[in-house]
């Protein structure tokens, strides 16, 4: 059974007539990794908030169509009621800081503390989340003193400590080095084997394509495509950013300097091999 399902769903912010999101049709299974790609203003962050259960209480808007988590409508409960099941990490990591904690360890523990868990369980979760995000060394630091990249690690750790069924990462790696982002996403991917679903919102193709089973492409608030990375390569790269090697492959395909039977490269690990296949048939 699907963990989350959107069907003919649209969202119109209060006070405007033009919908911010429309034509949403997709479902998400437990353990699945989905990438939502689109440019600035494509509606990614609005969709992320919607999926986190912030509509209509924290984000006043009118929703139409079906948008459910499990069997419940997403608009049905207060955001606080979803917190145990869905966690959203936003692009601005400082937005995740509660201001009630005076060390990183206390910040990460804050969520589990609110759930009233036993002390030993909280300590175990905090240690595991900090280790997974390679933030152990930051445990004693004051949250307000963190650099952007450090704060992003802590924000992700704080979300993980809630052990959600669904983790939404809205450009949550943007301040990390490529090396750090890749290895962190690899470890998060491992958690999906235990059933956690992961949605990556991004305007860059590379990382998402590498980990996501399916890609949902947004443009101007509309769902324009849903499918695998290979299938969506040509259309996606006209809308979102990608590294130079993938862009080169895209231009070659557009200019006809490619063979029809060679599939597009979707990660940098395969790009040289694909170009080679074009050359050597």
């Amino acid at each position: 059974m699907a963990l989350m399902r959107f069907s003919g769903a649209s969202l119109t912010r209060r006070g405007v007539t033009q919908p911010a999101l429309s034509g949403l049709d997709f479902s998400l299974a437990p353990g699945e990794v989905l990438a939502v790609l689109g440019g600035s203003g494509s509606g990614k962050s609005t969709l992320a908030c919607w999926m986190a259960g912030w509509v209509p209480h924290a984000l006043p808007a009118q929703c139409d169509g079906t948008a459910v988590l499990g069997a419940e409508s997403l608009a049905g409960a207060q955001p606080v009621a979803w917190a145990q099941r869905v966690q959203l990490v936003q692009a601005n990591p400082y937005a995740a800081l509660t201001g009630c904690a005076f060390s990183v360890a206390a910040e990460v523990a804050f969520g589990p503390e609110n759930l009233g868990l036993a002390e030993a369980e909280i300590r175990r979760r905090v240690a595991a989340a900090l280790a997974l995000c390679e933030a152990d060394a930051l445990a004693a630091r004051h949250p307000a003193s963190l650099s952007g990249g450090e704060a992003q690690r802590v924000a992700i750790a704080a979300a993980l400590a809630m052990q959600p069924q669904l983790l939404l990462l809205d450009e949550a790696f943007s301040r990390l080095t490529p090396a750090a982002a890749t290895s962190l996403l690899g470890r998060l991917h491992d958690l999906c084997r235990d059933g956690m679903a992961l949605v990556l919102f991004d305007k860059q193709f590379d990382l998402a394509a590498r980990h996501a089973g399916r890609i949902l492409l947004l443009d101007g608030g509309r769902q324009v495509a849903l499918g695998g990375a290979v299938e969506l390569f040509d259309v996606a790269l006209t809308q979102v950013r990608a590294c130079d090697a993938l862009r080169a492959a895209h231009r070659a395909r557009q200019a006809g300097a490619w063979h029809a039977e060679v599939s597009p490269p979707v990660t940098t690990a395969t790009v040289a091999a694909r170009f080679g296949e074009v050359l050597h048939g």
Partner: peptide, 10 residues
């Protein structure tokens, strides 16, 4: 929003 997201007062 940050407090809600961490199940504060749940």
């Amino acid at each position: 929003a940050a407090l809600d997201a961490r199940a504060f007062r749940s």
